[in-house]
Design a protein around this nucleic acid. Structure first.
Lengths: 184, 184
DNA sequence: CGACTTTACTTAACGGCGTTAAATTGTCAA
DNA sequence: TTGACAATTTAACGCCGTTAAGTAAAGTCG
């Protein structure tokens, strides 16, 4: 395991370094060379652990989604579950620079991995949702949240706009409107 | 005007060529060299008309937004105006490959141009909305629509998922839920 | 008409990017 | 001791956005 170097890198350390790089330099700052340098390694070494950059971005996206979903573990009904999903993902996305943009450019995962969306929505089944209805409701909440995150990232520069209305409050208001309709 | 070449290029022809290139090759296919080739010109010639690639993308984004808004010209009330805004933008975004991703990576326009969002939301004022409430409502509808477009672009490859529920119908259902709450 | 400026392009080049190929080195099993 | 294997290195390729410098046509003006 340990080789020339005291500690070697693996997918997990690469992933964490990538998020660190994202927060410090933004999405454009994520280059294979910069990421490698942060791990005290040459760029091609990364390709032993990761197929290509697109896979790395997909890994990061998946990590963000899963962290967002953890927020709705103890939800007692469909309404609170969907609210927690939206707010959880929102919290995760606001916690990383350019996180919305990252999700936007992330290539879809492998076909086998597309089942993730299905697994994610599964808890809704417990509350009596059909698979189709669960996927629908989840898609609506995730769409609103991702779109909102992008809006926020883009508006960050135009402070003038943000002084005219509270974007965060707008989300807090809009999400329940959508969710209430979805569970009705 | 006309010089060495019979017809010269300008911002408008560049913009149209860029959308053509987008539809044929996707967002990754939009390179300054490919765009120039499509106009029978060398790449650096583009920089006479456009500051850099980011400005080109911003131009395309603005064009998409404005085309989306044209849909809600004849709306009689706030509800139908917001519905038309969402559906109009949705129609425009589904009409171009990777249009959602393009909006997501487009850098915010110049500060002076940030007033565009304000101008866009202005018609809502006629229906009795305050500026803040109009911007809020518009942000919610645009967020849902952009997020939905991204969802759709990413899910396009995972046909398996799409066979389990109707994403378009999901949007048609979710948008009124949000809008009804916003105008209440 | 001829000199000068301006417009709109060309060619050439730079540095950085993602990625691949090949060589290299340390570790472990037989 | 040897040989397979894991994990990295060095070197390089082609493409990217972008800049610098040169150049030809068109407009301006004495």
């Amino acid at each position: 395991m340990a080789r020339l170097r005291d500690i070697s890198i693996d997918r997990e350390t690469i992933l964490r370094a990538a998020f660190g790089l994202l927060d410090e330099t933004g999405l454009d700052g994520i280059t294979m060379r910069a990421l490698a340098a942060r791990l005290s390694v040459q760029a091609p070494a990364l390709y032993w652990h990761v197929k290509d950059k697109a896979e790395l971005i997909a890994m990061m996206a998946q990590d963000l989604y899963l962290r967002g979903r953890e927020e709705c573990r103890g939800s007692a009904d469909a309404r609170s579950w969907l609210l927690a999903l939206g707010q959880g993902l929102r919290r995760v996305l606001t916690g990383h620079r350019d996180a919305g943009r990252l999700l936007a450019i992330a290539r879809p995962l492998t076909p086998a991995d597309a089942a993730l969306a299905e697994r994610m929505a599964a808890p809704l089944g417990v509350f009596g949702f059909s698979v189709a209805r669960a996927l629908e409701a989840q898609a609506a909440v995730l769409s609103l949240t991702l779109g909102w995150a992008l809006y926020r990232e883009n508006a960050a520069m135009a402070e003038h706009l943000l002084r005219m209305f509270d974007l965060d409050a707008s989300y807090e208001k809009g999400l329940p409107l959508l969710v209430d309709g979805l569970v009705a």
